[in-house]
Each structure stands twice: as structure tokens, then as C-alpha cells.
């Protein structure tokens, strides 16, 4: 089943096109990763997909319906923002972790305590329940925001640079958790990152973004990512994970292309 479908979408800010003619189909139960250099429009794409921004041209559909016309019950999408550049969170509100999660369930007030317990346990952060969100480390905050996104039992989870500013141990734990979430809970995951190292191990489908989106979806194949040609003379290929092929990133020339 197609979850997200983006058709001929263009987005402009300050008289400049940030995204041009984006076309994308994301099926359910997969991990789709968007890579691209800083300033390539990754966060803008995510904000358009969760309805925070509106495109000037084109459409974004979720289960064949325009996302702006969906009810909260129909749009079951969890969102984890990029913590390092996310200025929305108040630095003056002394909110314990359990209340951060509770506030995400203002629309669905059934079994709140059970749901909070469940997501805290899933992420193994039960001991943070009464801690103030502001006092947590970057990695802990990221896990709490992930728990918040999962509290409403979403069918799709969208994460914007979920491990930026996070220590290696937390990074490892978060990516393992996302993999398990996708395999066991069958949650569709849309992941944005500029860190190419993490892509092969987790992705079923990869999109390279630099105003335009270049999409590849064949498992177990090396794909070329033209947007990185400016950064590496040879360009870069990303290996989308397959059963018998090791996960790695390799420059184009190694394959004689």
C-alpha cells in the first residue's frame, strides 16, 4: 500500500525555489532514508510531509488523501525533530519527561499512563520518567522525543537527523531501536540524515536530495548519488542493504563506473 505520494511538488521561500519538482512514492512498512548535504532542503521536505509547510505547486497525499484535509485520526504520523536546530522547545518550562509524553496525547486521552509506561519501556528510559526534560543530555532528549512520537501509536515515523549531537552509544541504540521498530512493529520509517555512514545498514529505499530528489529502491544494489559529486570528485554510491551484500559506502570509481 502507498502511504506517502508526492506529485510534482515545488516549494519556494524568499523568491527562491528550495525544492523543485519532487516526485516520490513511499510504500508502507519500509525504511526510506533521505540524504543530502546541508542546505539541500531535507528539513523543508520533512516539514512539508507533516503539514507544517504548504507547497506552492504539486500535492502531497497520505493514503491517497491530501494531507491538509486529513483528520488527526487519519494522519497517524509521529515526528521527531532535529534537536540541535529545533528552537521551538521552551527553555523555561520545567516539564518532567512523563508530562512531555502526556502532552502529545491531548487528542487521545485513553490509557495515558499505560501508553507512557509502554514507550518509556520500549526505549529503556523508565528511570527518566520524573527527570526534567531540560536537564537531560542530547541523547536522552532524543530518546524522549522518540518516545513522544511513538506514544500515539503511529503507523509512520518521520525523523529529522535523529542522531545529530548525540553520543555514539545513544546513536547505536537509536538506530538499532528503529530497525527493530520497523521489523517487529511494522512501522514505516522516514529518516533524514546528512550522515551517509548510517544509510546502508537501515534503508530499504534511499532518496538523494539537492533541490531535486533522486530516488533508488532496489535492495542489494549500489546506487549513484549525483548530489555528492560536488563534495567528492568521484561522486558517491550508496549500498542499499541486501541479504548477502555487506553494508558500506564506496566511491564510484571502485566499481569501474
Amino acid at each position: 500500500m502507498n502511504l506517502f505520494e508526492i506529485r510534482n511538488m515545488w516549494y519556494q521561500f524568499d523568491d527562491r525555489w528550495i525544492l523543485e519538482d519532487i516526485n516520490l512514492v513511499i510504500r508502507d512498512k519500509i525504511v526510506f532514508t533521505v540524504v543530502g548535504p546541508n542546505g539541500s532542503g531535507k528539513t523543508t521536505l520533512i516539514k512539508l510531509m507533516v503539514g507544517l509547510l504548504r507547497p506552492q505547486r504539486g500535492r502531497i497525499l497520505y493514503k491517497n488523501k491530501d494531507i491538509m484535509k486529513l483528520s488527526p485520526e487519519e494522519f497517524r504520523v509521529g515526528y521527531v525533530p532535529q534537536l540541535s536546530s529545533y528552537s521551538e522547545i521552551s527553555q523555561r518550562l520545567l516539564l518532567p519527561v512523563s508530562d512531555v509524553i502526556r502532552l502529545s496525547m491531548l487528542r487521545n486521552k485513553e490509557n495515558i499512563k499505560v501508553k507512557i509506561d509502554r514507550v518509556l519501556e520500549m526505549l529503556q528510559i523508565e528511570d527518566l520518567r520524573n527527570e526534567l526534560f531540560l536537564k537531560l543530555s542530547g541523547g536522552q532528549k532524543q530518546k524522549v522525543l522518540l518516545a513522544r512520537a511513538l506514544a500515539n501509536e503511529p503507523e509512520t515515523l518521520i525523523l529529522d537527523e535523529p542522531v545529530t549531537g548525540v553520543d555514539q552509544e545513544s546513536e547505536f541504540h537509536i538506530f538499532n531501536f528503529l530497525k527493530q521498530l520497523n521489523r517487529k512493529e511494522k512501522i514505516t520509517i522516514i529518516l533524514v540524515t546528512h550522515d551517509l555512514d548510517v544509510v546502508p545498514g537501515i534503508s530499504d529505499k534511499v532518496g538523494c536530495l539537492d533541490k531535486r530528489l533522486y530516488v533508488h529502491n532496489k535492495g542489494g544494489e549500489f546506487i549513484s548519488c549525483p548530489v555528492y559529486k560536488n563534495q567528492m570528485k568521484e561522486g558517491l554510491e550508496i549500498l542499499v542493504h541486501g541479504k548477502n551484500i555487506p553494508h558500506r559506502l564506496v566511491p564510484l570509481h571502485r566499481h569501474g563506473k
Binding site: G51, S90, L103
Partner: peptide
């Protein structure tokens, strides 16, 4: 919710 994270409130519709 408005004070803590207005943007997330928007995503929650």
C-alpha cells in the same frame, strides 16, 4: 503544549 512545543502541537493538528 503551546508553550513547550508549538510546532509539535501543529503536527498533532
Amino acid at each position: 503544549m503551546l508553550v513547550f512545543d508549538r510546532e509539535y502541537g501543529r503536527i498533532m493538528r
